[in-house]
Design a protein around this nucleic acid. Sequence first.
DNA 1: CGATCAATTGACTTAGCTCAAAGCATGTGG
DNA 2: CCACATGCTTTGAGCTAAGTCAATTGATCG
Lengths: 231, 231
Amino acid sequence: MASFRGAILLNRASPQVADRLCALGEPVSLSKGEELPSDAEDDRLVFVSSGSAKLTAQAEPEQTHILAFHFPGDFVSVLRRCDGYFRLIALTDVELVVFQASSFLDLAQEEPAVLRSVLARSIQALHRSRTKMMRLGHKSARQRIADFLVSMAERICGCTCGSCEISLPMSRRDIGDSLGLKIETVSRQFTDLRDEGLIETTGRSLVKFNDLKALAAEAGHALSSEIQPQN
Amino acid sequence: MASFRGAILLNRASPQVADRLCALGEPVSLSKGEELPSDAEDDRLVFVSSGSAKLTAQAEPEQTHILAFHFPGDFVSVLRRCDGYFRLIALTDVELVVFQASSFLDLAQEEPAVLRSVLARSIQALHRSRTKMMRLGHKSARQRIADFLVSMAERICGCTCGSCEISLPMSRRDIGDSLGLKIETVSRQFTDLRDEGLIETTGRSLVKFNDLKALAAEAGHALSSEIQPQN
DNA sequence: CGATCAATTGACTTAGCTCAAAGCATGTGG
DNA sequence: CCACATGCTTTGAGCTAAGTCAATTGATCG
């Protein structure tokens, strides 16, 4: 369970401003599979307190793209419904703090350090997104899956090397939708990695990594610094 | 030839701050093929006054990824050399205004409206990048090329429908590197589109569009709003 | 006008998609 | 608590789009 107030204070905001920002946020709880009600008026900033969620974009019917997975501590920006609409959907029961982007920024503006920190993070996120997404366009299915697993290990349990075990909150379909792969291809890659001893799986969601460095190497030298939470 | 000062004033900055920002920038001219000297210390913000340039990332030797093409009026952020280094390379003779990101932001901080506007643009750019790049992962070669051509028509000559003619400043290899396609595939797609009468080509760089809407449809309903200059 | 490098075209290979069927988890009701 | 039903996942066989290798054509610049 991540605290929004704590995250803000890390940006060296004054406690007063942190409190006022907190007051601005609306706590929202979603249970597994539920969707954050969409808003046609305003862009929103959403802080994830606990659980996990997927941010999707539906350009055309029958083709869902998953833009990102989000975990506790993440700060997600959800654009208002306009060009191809965005949806934030709970993968597990999830607790959020939802802000209207404009009023959040109005207030943050009083604390230029916060605003600037948010900007710096945003520029970094843009670059990460660009490098990462662009790489996706150049990578094989195996590399995409390896890259995905390494990034999940880092985000879910903070591991970048050695071995660890995580529970993936998303389905194979979700993974495919986020990497531009079909569900069968995702499954086959899991099988291959399992056969080669790079991972072990139990049930649908448990994945054990035996050597994260080796897996990262499979991803095509994905630098671990590229795989941090967005905000 | 775009004016940096003019672009800043559009953000409703005071003329004083605009002047001080101008003073902070270092004008740089590059001739075709030249590269902006890299900087290991600071992230930089680069304004494109005239000409065009490509922003590349070299994760591994022998594999260059083009992150974006840039045209007059664009505001590019070039990260310092760290994770896989970034290079800004002139496609034509180009005039730039180069800022140290930190000092630019220090100054912009005095004008919260500017800072916030930059932030808002940056968040938008992040979303565009995500949607666009993610789509690339799901698109066929034909759709990628069509999408690319439509976006170039919009950025180079401002056309979104009807017919127009542009001169592409980048090579087929550059196009491939930016879309995750091989040069031969790029060429074949050009041939196909030419055979179908959607485009006409003269020499290496001239491309004439007969029906941009039809081309956009080929791109898979790429919304024109998704194809605007970054900043 | 010729040298050089970019672009095109062709033949072949392969990674990932499609269609189809079978195996497992998970959770629900008896 | 077990059995079954549902939906997720895995596996298989064949196909297609894009990559690879190789040769040719064409554009651009000195």
